[in-house]
Design a protein around this nucleic acid. Sequence first.
DNA 1: CATGAATGAGAGTTCATTCAT
DNA 2: AATGAATGAACTCTCATTCAT
Lengths: 211, 211, 211, 211
Amino acid sequence: MTKKIELRSEETKRSILAASSKLFTEKGFSAVSIREIAKQAGCSHTTIYIYFKDKEALLHAISMPLLEELKQKFQHILNHLEQPSEAKLYEISIEFIHFCLIHQSMYKILFQTQTTRVDEKEPESNLNKLRNELFELLMQSLQKSLGLKTESEELLEYTRIYYYTLQGIVTTYSFSNEPLNQIMKRLNTTFESAFEVLLLGFKQKLNIGVD
Amino acid sequence: MTKKIELRSEETKRSILAASSKLFTEKGFSAVSIREIAKQAGCSHTTIYIYFKDKEALLHAISMPLLEELKQKFQHILNHLEQPSEAKLYEISIEFIHFCLIHQSMYKILFQTQTTRVDEKEPESNLNKLRNELFELLMQSLQKSLGLKTESEELLEYTRIYYYTLQGIVTTYSFSNEPLNQIMKRLNTTFESAFEVLLLGFKQKLNIGVD
Amino acid sequence: MTKKIELRSEETKRSILAASSKLFTEKGFSAVSIREIAKQAGCSHTTIYIYFKDKEALLHAISMPLLEELKQKFQHILNHLEQPSEAKLYEISIEFIHFCLIHQSMYKILFQTQTTRVDEKEPESNLNKLRNELFELLMQSLQKSLGLKTESEELLEYTRIYYYTLQGIVTTYSFSNEPLNQIMKRLNTTFESAFEVLLLGFKQKLNIGVD
Amino acid sequence: MTKKIELRSEETKRSILAASSKLFTEKGFSAVSIREIAKQAGCSHTTIYIYFKDKEALLHAISMPLLEELKQKFQHILNHLEQPSEAKLYEISIEFIHFCLIHQSMYKILFQTQTTRVDEKEPESNLNKLRNELFELLMQSLQKSLGLKTESEELLEYTRIYYYTLQGIVTTYSFSNEPLNQIMKRLNTTFESAFEVLLLGFKQKLNIGVD
DNA sequence: CATGAATGAGAGTTCATTCAT
DNA sequence: AATGAATGAACTCTCATTCAT
């Protein structure tokens, strides 16, 4: 009996999450109204308030699985693919860019929002934790590409630089109206070049430092 | 006689601009209401409509001088400072980052908004023009640092890459709550390193290409 | 359970319709504000937007039943009354004039507004359809009074002329401040005469045409 | 000295009147703003308030000359044209219809508004006086066409009926979006027919009455 | 668990009008 | 005589949210 209800409840919650995810991604957080989400989710707008304190809580609930998904992609590339380290780094990077451009309007929230709400401890720190994990994976990949020691100062620094460039690319291309495919194509050549430049720079700088 | 009035009018307009500038910067464009601006400016909200067609017009009126100011800083560094090219590029970059972080929430509008309003030609294209000019100045500075030919393909590509990194840094640090001074300090070491890496990378890649 | 709620909802909707109807009739469409309606209806102004998309939708919701009612009166006179055709025509006409004068300020909307909104097909075309049906009934009545063929050119023309005169009477008397009863009385003699003149004219013209 | 100023003043007033007249005619009274008039008149909107108490006063100041103009056309047709009486009546009628359709949006004010404002005695009664004079001229023309006695009861009644039809035609065609030329063409055949019908009816009724 | 009903706050914008000059 | 500056009231409409059921 109760199980049935619980199941239904779960389902409703999931459909709300799916709807918000879709809409936020398409139109951006503040451009989507609660009623719109409810309509898409096939429930009343009041129902949303049963599961989520407010609009922002909903947002955070969405962010997690998205980032989780990205993390798994990263891990898969790192662990299950038979490729040289650099190729893996390249692939991870493209994956990251692609992911950010797909979730254009969520992007800001996913990567840039300060997790301010301290009252509800858990969800925020979790989000932060995930972000850090993604960064760690990127670092790990860069480390292998450059043959650096695991915990060196340089590694952290270089990863940051690398990460900035990725972010910069995303922000720049974020506001184009072209379809994603085209953007990714146009972007590919530029990124390839950027990738080369950065790796060359890193290596060169390491050599100099050694001297 | 009339001068007094004109002066008062000018003052009102200025106070509106100052208020909007402040508020937009603090809270972002759409989070600020016309009435809020009026209160801050010390006038009625209808008065704003005397001077500016609508909210967006107000925004553009603010954007232009800001970018103009930045452009002049760029030009000053490029033309009037006695420094090696690389030092100039470095300084321009820091200036750019600093500027973007000061105008945090305006940033998006200043650099990332598609200029959609095509009906009224002037204001928008002017904004775009300014943006391009800023990019040109950056390109020019990079060109001199790398000793490249003025219109080479590589130059454009490298400038893009360089610009991405700047953007990336800005976006990353944009959402910190630290005071600007501290951010700039923290950021300085990282950027110094990034700067080195990029230039090394560019040069290396040019050499390889030559071979 | 739910029935109670539904009933309340229905009641609210009805009270909104009643209020708008009253106010529009008294003061004219654009002179009435949504908040005014809400106050009269005893609800918040936002509630109105729950039931009606916007002000215009509200207007149409009012118009339809009114015209429907008039149409039924027409039909009742035509079909259920034992009277000579001319008497029926006379009665229909008086009914029409009466109706228009009761709904003074709605009059313009009911009969004269171009139905511009083409995007949402239904409501508008329905209104137009109703208008045409009323005209058809009038035509039918005139046809029987004159003994004309159903689809003749003359019939259409004469109905137009007849309709103009009705409209003219309404417009003329529309702006008097007298109570409706008195107007109708004053108007009666004049209309009786107009009725005679027109019918005589029509018949005479038909005879001449025949010769 | 003073004369020059007075002249200028007169001129300003005239330009305001001209502007309002044009705009009211084009867009209707309430759709025109004071500022719009001022712009068209080439003066400040505050200037308007020097000459006219408020928007409505402006409206009444415009009405008079317009009606005056129409009256003169009527008189010209009646007195200076060499045509049979019926032709003159026809022409007057067409003139009337034409006038009303040109001044579409003023129409309501010109012919239908109750002159309520009693505080300023003069202008209103003048407007009413003019309206009556126009009606008188129409009556006079009809009287000659029917060969009736000047002050007969029938004449008044028939003129009313005739006037209703004119009004009805105007109201009906008022809301078309076609250009005036086309409307007048379409309207011509219908009116010709209506004219015939009415005159035939009048004459017939007179004959019957005599018998 | 879920919902329709209802709301207050607030958004941008326009208006006729007044005041000081 | 004429004006630019400035205002308050009002407009339609949207929103996130709460309440009673």
